[in-house]
Design a protein around this nucleic acid. Sequence first.
DNA 1: GCTTGACTCTCACCTAAGGGGAGGCCTCAT
DNA 2: ATGAGGCCTCCCCTTAGGTGAGAGTCAAGC
Lengths: 289, 289
Amino acid sequence: MGEVSIGEFARRSRLSIKALRLYDELGVLIPTRVDGQSGYRYYDDAQLETARLVAMLRQLEIPLATIKELLVSDPVDAAQWITAHWRQVESAHDARRELADYLVNLLSGKESTMYEVATREIPERTLLCLKRNVDEPGAWALGKEFVAILRDRPLPKMDGRAGAMFSIYWGEVSADSDGPVEWCKPIPESDAKALASHYPELSLRTEPAHREAYVELPNDALPTGPGENPAVQWQLASEALRAWAVEYGMDPESLSLRPEDLGIRITYLASEPVTEASAPYCDFAVPFA
Amino acid sequence: MGEVSIGEFARRSRLSIKALRLYDELGVLIPTRVDGQSGYRYYDDAQLETARLVAMLRQLEIPLATIKELLVSDPVDAAQWITAHWRQVESAHDARRELADYLVNLLSGKESTMYEVATREIPERTLLCLKRNVDEPGAWALGKEFVAILRDRPLPKMDGRAGAMFSIYWGEVSADSDGPVEWCKPIPESDAKALASHYPELSLRTEPAHREAYVELPNDALPTGPGENPAVQWQLASEALRAWAVEYGMDPESLSLRPEDLGIRITYLASEPVTEASAPYCDFAVPFA
DNA sequence: GCTTGACTCTCACCTAAGGGGAGGCCTCAT
DNA sequence: ATGAGGCCTCCCCTTAGGTGAGAGTCAAGC
């Protein structure tokens, strides 16, 4: 029968002997027979297929613990897991590409055309809001919830930018800090109360007039799902705002780039009816004092 | 002046205290002052810019040792380095995407349409060859050299596939094993000697008739530069060939998927005049006994 | 001036996926 | 039976930090 030594098996599977011993120890790929006397490992020819699978999964940088689970699960489920995993990898890769481009521009001294800073006056306005303490995945869910609430119920159209919904990060959203995050939609002041009565889930509040510095986010950088970390955009946008503040002789601290202070806003200019995928424009704004 | 403690600096730079201490130790980012008595680290406000740069470079998974060098080098050079590095990252990512697709197809039980195996008869033919022991980067250089030799000197056109140049991997090409690798171009037998006299750098040999099993490589998977590792294609193609051999009841070993035996061939159907970028078709073949 | 609480220090150990080597058995072919 | 090469375990090393212990330090309030 096809019983081979570890060296031969390593050659055929294109895995190293060290790796095979580790996989044995971790229970990922256990030799069919281990000589009790000598401790020699013997593998069966039929294990080659598994070994090659493990090698390929490792090339995708999937952790051994996960591989171990994938091996015992249904292959179709495993395929789905890989698909989902790969989606995450792609999005992380896209974010890093964005960052690399930005860095190359920055270091080579070119003014990057992306992330140009502008300012705008925001008049006092009336908002319908949904505010909650959420963690990282919860922030995305909150946005979906807000969009779902607004959809299919009557809302008077407001001119483009003025009616754009936006989210405010009142605090850091991370593993150990949970916002809060608030989603808002401006509505005409005239019949605010009447409108608000259609949305018992949302609260009505008035936002004072103020000025904002903002950066338009590249369209392909919009988050399209949970865990699509917008951290890179957040970072690049605040970097741009900081640079802008310095250039105009402002104290960067007065821009309050830390959300604790005035709340960082992300504006979504969504077309009506609002859906998750309908935001053709998105910017990152910070009010300044 | 702007002298801040490590905690404050960590907050502003969005780096962890642990990371900052490590960067100090490794000489990547050294505090402007370290209290001799207490050992407390004090950073200058002006170091924030560097700190943010380090943070971004780390997000690109650039090793700290490299970052240290980038920080002291000319920014334009650094930008070029990043550009080159990112190209490598992109190509590795493409290879992994290929692999992920293959795996999902494999596990979900679909017949993958890529990597279909076919066989062909190769008649005895006369070849002009360039053979050398090369390591991984050398293999690419050898191909460029071969292409450069063939370019601009008279060669009778041969019908498409029959005249396609190809490379033979006579041995494994890796860090510790260096081939040899041979590049070949079929020429008409009739006036072989006359032709060969134009190419003193190349050797003339006759290849015996044989059969090959081969797999067409996806067009976007062609290596386009050094270090673009074709390892993934190599792997997927041999996987396909192995599966094919098993399906047809052949002993996979008789296919000699290890290059030591009969030599694995990669065929480039290049248009004339031959240039590095002119191969619209590429396959991976293994002779069988 | 003292206390308290927050901040910081060093040191040592941990992670994942192996690589490298030392010292000692094991197996196989001659 | 003997040498060569294969294999064993055990230990340390890598990267970029994270976690915690125990001790020292800083600044504010009293």
